[in-house]
Design a protein around this nucleic acid. Structure first.
Lengths: 249, 249
DNA sequence: CGTCACTTTGAGGCTAGTCAACGGCGGTGG
DNA sequence: CCACCGCCGTTGACTAGCCTCAAAGTGACG
């Protein structure tokens, strides 16, 4: 099961390094209220249990503090379908707000850390401090936009390019300027509705085109503009120069 | 452009026939507050202009009162991508809450009517009456679940079966028990990521299997259980008897 | 009654999936 | 320390579902 942080202290959000998280998007009143509510952080390890499972009555939202969490469903045939990856600053469990029941199972992809926002407290908090509700709503709205982008009909190249750029935007690059894929290629493909072989082949094609180069375990995005152009149709990244010029012509 | 309802009266939600709309899901206080806010209804006709266009700063959410509205984006190549259909009770524009800018263009598919919820008023209302925020959040969460279902990897039969059942659930059947498709097959295909020819052929295959029969301009779902089984994997409808038995075996 | 948009039907092609086999890497245990 | 094992990534050949293109049929509407 989950390894709970040793110290049963309330988390001090003011000191949280995650600049994109909810508390950093509101005023100090909201930040304080949010901070008050959060339960101690939880450490999450791959193969170490799930935050919640599909069908569970959801008891808390989780705010990712570090690492990467994937949410997936399992259909009747036992096939896993990855519904989303969550990075630092993301809230997990938003898709369960409607029914109160989790639609997916959430597990860590790499060693991760989350903050716990109990639903009961959250509801009370949103009632007392309406600004919080607006922030949460923004997050859901963002996730909705992402899901809709993913729902579109795109080629393997378009989807993968968009995913790489999204990943870089969310996780940044390492010290060496390289993008590291925290999850397996199989997971990327599952998420993007591509066979893992297709992910591999498409990455190779990108490499042959000179758009990226493999560096150790990571990738260096060499021609980011080209990737942006390829991904432009998906709509979650802005087009690069070539695309802009093409549109102007 | 839009044809505004003649009478500049506030809409009385208490009398609204749409039982699934937001006001009917809260208590009387919420209902009253919501009702107070709504601007006069707007009549919407196909080819008569858009509620809002992609890129517009969104000024209001719209609550569908009757008819059917489609939301779509247009990519650089001019291709239309339908992001969703909205039926009575649905809120339009939720995907814009994050950025304040509409991500899609919304137009009527058939003669329709919407109620207008100005964003400024809505924000104030959600602050004063937090229950409203929770309702709106439920709606977004619901839409998110739908988008995620659509984002899955399914065959043409699975997607179309799921869509037909979803449509019937949302619009009900006519007096003759027939399901009417308000939108063109091309729009259905666009939404489901299928060529319109594929939609047509798949419908024909359903007909040959005896799952449905065309009745005039509509469809009669003859073997709904079979459709449910076909659509079960998509997850937005419950499986029928055959599927349940198969799982038990 | 003609036009136009939508639907239907057919033939052919392509993208990506499936299946199979191999290579590389890390972990585990002897 | 090294051999073994399992997972992941890679590569090739083949397949299949769906798209594309083309053309004819149907209904709505002016």
């Amino acid at each position: 099961m989950l390894a709970t942080a040793a110290a049963p202290l309330k988390t001090d959000c003011q000191l949280c390094p995650v600049r994109s998280c909810l508390v950093h998007r509101g005023d100090t009143t909201q930040a304080g209220a949010w901070s008050e509510m959060l339960a101690p952080r939880q450490a999450l390890m791959p193969d170490d249990g799930a935050l919640h499972r599909a069908g569970d009555r959801l008891r808390a939202l989780y705010s990712v503090r570090g690492g990467c969490v994937k949410a997936f469903t399992v259909d009747a045939a036992g096939n896993e379908r990855i519904r989303g990856f969550y990075f630092p600053g993301d809230l997990i469990g938003l898709d369960a707000l409607a029914g109160g029941v989790a639609l997916s199972t959430a597990v860590a992809v790499v060693p991760s850390q989350v903050c716990v926002a109990p639903l009961a407290d959250l509801n009370a908090l949103m009632t007392e401090t309406p600004g919080i509700a607006l922030r949460v709503m923004e997050q859901i709205s963002r996730e909705l936009a992402l899901a809709m982008a993913l729902a579109g009909e795109y080629t393997a190249e378009q989807r993968l390019a968009a995913f790489l750029l999204y990943l870089r935007q969310r996780t940044g690059t390492g010290l060496d300027g390289c993008l590291r894929l925290p999850m397996a290629q199989r997971d990327v493909g599952n998420y993007l509705r591509l066979a893992n072989e297709t992910v591999c082949r498409t990455l190779k094609r990108f490499e042959q085109k000179g758009w990226l180069t493999p560096v150790g375990r990571g990738l260096r995005l060499v021609d980011e503009a080209a990737l942006r152009d390829a991904a432009a149709a998906v709509g979650i990244v802005k087009p690069g120069l070539a695309q802009t010029l093409a549109q102007a012509a």
